[in-house]
Design a protein around this nucleic acid. Structure first.
Length: 726
DNA sequence: GATAGGGTTGTTTTT
DNA sequence: CAACCCTATC
């Protein structure tokens, strides 16, 4: 048997999607229609919402303010379509995260009593992936491509820099990371390299630099093609390209009758273009987009909320609806939200109609420092619990991942269970990446990034040698076979400057790896790999046992997927679902936890009580944005999104000092709080509360303790460890 | 010329 | 913790 044949996945099978398999049997349809007949659209929706749902036809734009029942409306739209005998597979539902897609389908399921299988639901990227796996060959690449994330794309750009011998010594030339960022903006925003540089990186506005960059981008592109890799931007580019061919566009678009897009304010030019093309060929131009310009917070990724405003101009008969009734927050919280967002100049005014009864004013608390801030939050949480709130009714929402560190510590101190959606990602830890590198090779043996990771694990092998080893491989016909059967690889290895013993080790490892690996049995493959990797981890790290545990988590998670390809796709595309750190559940009964999250990740969610900490200058707004720029207004929208997550109680906190890795830094009150009308909140000062002071000074959170607790991941999955024995 | 190891510095937001 | 730079060493 030819090794290559069984290492590479067999011809692209029917693409199976992890959550929604296409399976439209008659019995399912009957069940759906039974469920649908019980829905009372009139009663369940308000007038505005009902108007939208009642006649879903042609182009529709829905401006939906925070808490206006946006998700509810979309869910009922899907139900309504199904009730009109639209097949699930004719509906495309584009959401901002795959998690959001899963949740929406779940809500449809709850509504109609059965899971509507076959809906094309997911992010732009994950839907693109479904097409690309299918049509890869017509686009000129192989269907077993690997999706690379931003970190890998940066590594690839670095490899490109080395190949083109670019020097980046004295800040006069963009770093590989910046270069990739420029390229990404240019692709997503439909701007030339030169325009992008003038727009975002004016320090590099120089014709020599630009022409050199263009040269680099060509090499980068070729390298990706050669290694059979696809980055996030490519997914959109290629999908868009598919739609440029009339025949292909019709073929794709004609399978859809209805396209619904959520969070349209966060689409970029390219995504908008894709939607435009799709809607052109969709049978009746049925396209419904929902969004809120005030909640556009992804400008750093090329998102442009103008897309939503121009949508109605582009389609002749576009109907515009406004959902203005806020069901989420008490009037006091809405007052504060409105009072904040009005400071943004480029904003389309809309008045939210308050529907909830009078509640309590938001509270602003100035604390001595970030440590005290953490204690105040933890104490308040305990008080709230005494008042009858559950921990899971409460969220702490912040601007940046590292803002949670002290708060986490204090929650641990007070034994409050919490769950974190932010921070150093599980999948980016070195050993996890090592494991995934092996899986990627199995899927696509041409991937240099992965080979390089694997080779570099051996003593004496660094970047250069690894790159040479990859050269040997890629210049050998049938490389994998030659490793095992032929001596060619071995002979060429001898020409490299590495110790004999290491050569042997490399060969032995590769043979073991390649012969033991069989495609489509991801769990067994992974367990074998873990055994191999454990040896390396033991030598390198004192905490190797923790790391092995991480790897086992990967193994458990992989069981949800039938092929390595699907597993790797899911890891690349579903990061937000996977990266969750859970702490303190075990020592506090089975209480559901408090949520700690970045505001970005909290989008679309709500809690009864919300804390927004770190409202001090240089933290929130972040020191990365300049005053009075469009970025600054985006920063304010982030604040707005945070505020509008709260249903009943909102606490804003501003520390006056923060303990850094290097000493203590003084902080000024955040402009976002300073500019608020004092009438919209009440201020609480803890500085005079001596009892709390005593409490704080008696605490001594040593550095030791911080280290011990940080980044300790408890199992993400409940599956028993016994699953993994052998 | 290349790797290993020590020391330093510092953290936006995400598909 | 990790990404970075610098230097000792093979």
């Amino acid at each position: 048997m030819n090794l290559n044949d069984y290492l590479r996945p067999t011809k692209n099978k029917e693409i199976s999607f992890d959550v929604f398999n296409e399976d439209n049997t008659i019995s399912t349809e009957t069940l759906i229609s039974e469920g649908l007949s019980k829905i009372d659209f009139r009663k369940d929706l308000n007038n505005q919402q009902f108007d939208v749902v009642n006649e879903i036809k042609g182009p529709q734009l829905i401006i939906a303010g925070a808490g206006s029942g946006k998700t509810r409306t979309i869910v009922y739209c899907v139900a309504k379509l199904l009730s009109e005998n639209v097949k699930p597979s004719e509906i495309m539902l584009v959401t901002f995260t795959n998690k959001a897609a899963t949740e929406m389908i779940k809500r449809v399921e709850i509504l109609i009593g059965i899971k509507p299988k076959g809906i094309w639901a997911g992010t732009f990227h994950s839907i693109a992936n479904r097409f690309l796996r299918q049509y890869a060959e017509s686009l000129g690449f192989k269907p077993n491509y690997i999706i690379i994330d931003e970190a890998d794309a940066n590594i690839l750009m670095k490899i490109t820099y080395n190949a083109t011998e670019v020097q980046t010594d004295n800040n006069s030339f963009p770093t590989p990371k910046t270069a990739r960022k420029i390229l990404s903006y240019s692709i997503n925003c439909n701007k030339t390299i030169s325009e992008t540089i003038k727009w975002k990186y004016s320090q590099y506005d120089d014709s020599k630099i630009i022409s050199k960059l263009k040269e680099i981008y060509k090499v980068y592109k070729n390298k990706k093609a050669k290694d059979n890799l696809i980055d996030f931007d490519d997914m959109l580019v290629f999908w868009n390209r598919l739609l440029d061919e009339r025949f292909m566009a019709q073929r794709i678009a004609s399978t859809f009758n209805f396209i619904l897009v959520d969070e349209y304010q966060d689409t970029n030019y390219l995504q908008d273009e894709i939607i435009r093309k799709l809607s052109k060929y969709t049978e009746k131009g049925n396209i419904l987009v929902v969004g809120d310009d005030a909640q556009s917070i992804y400008g750093f990724r090329g998102a442009n909320f103008q897309n939503i405003m121009e949508f109605s101009k582009r389609f002749e008969n576009c109907r515009i609806y406004k959902l203005t009734q806020n069901y989420r927050s008490v009037p006091e919280i809405l007052n504060l939200a409105n009072d904040s967002i009005k400071h943004n100049k480029s904003q389309f005014r809309k008045e939210m109609v308050k529907t909830r009864k009078k509640g309590v004013k938001p509270v602003h608390i100035i604390s001595e420092n970030d440590e005290q801030q953490a204690i105040i939050i933890a104490n308040k949480i305990i008080d709230l619990q005494k008042d009858g709130y559950n921990f899971s009714d409460i969220a702490v929402l912040y601007r940046a991942g590292f803002h949670s560190l002290r708060i986490e510590l204090e929650l641990q101190n007070q034994n409050i269970p919490y769950i974190v959606h932010s921070g150093v990602s599980f999948l980016e830890r070195a050993h996890v990446k090592d494991l995934l590198a092996h899986l990627r090779i199995i899927q696509n043996p041409e991937d240099e990034i992965s080979w390089s990771r694997i080779f570099s694990q051996f003593q004496g092998v660094g970047k250069k040698i690894a790159s040479k080893m990859f050269d040997i491989l890629s210049n050998t016909t049938d490389p994998l076979n030659s490793i095992i059967s032929d001596s060619l690889f071995k002979r060429k290895l001898q020409n490299l400057k590495i110790a004999k013993g290491v050569q042997e080790e490399v060969l032995l490892f590769l043979k073991g790896f390649l012969t033991s690996v069989k495609v489509d049995k991801s769990k067994e493959v992974i367990m074998k790999l873990i055994n191999q990797l454990t040896k390396h981890l033991k030598l390198q790290y004192s905490n190797w046992q923790d790391r092995v545990e991480d790897l086992k988590q990967i193994a458990i998670y992989s069981q949800n997927y039938d092929t390595i390809q699907n597993f790797l796709d899911a890891l690349a595309l579903n990061k937000s679902t996977i990266e969750t750190k859970t702490v303190g559940l075990s020592n506090n009964g089975n209480q559901s936890p408090v949520t700690l999250s970045t505001i970005h990740r909290a989008k679309g969610l709500e809690w009864k009580v919300v804390f927004i900490p770190m409202l001090s200058e240089n933290l929130f707004p972040s020191n990365k944005v300049k005053m009075n720029t469009s970025d600054y207004e985006e920063e304010r929208r982030v604040f707005y999104v945070g505020i509008t997550r709260a249903k009943e109680k909102l606490y804003l906190l501003s520390p006056q000092k923060i303990k850094n890795f290097k000493g203590v830094k003084d902080l000024n009150l955040s402009q976002f709080v300073k500019e608020l009308n004092p009438k919209v909140y009440s201020r609480l000062s803890y500085q005079k509360d001596s009892s709390l002071f005593d409490e704080i000074s008696s605490r001594n959170l040593s550095q030791e303790k911080i280290k011990k607790n940080q980044n300790k991941y408890l199992p993400l999955f409940t599956t028993a460890d016994s699953l993994l024995k052998d």
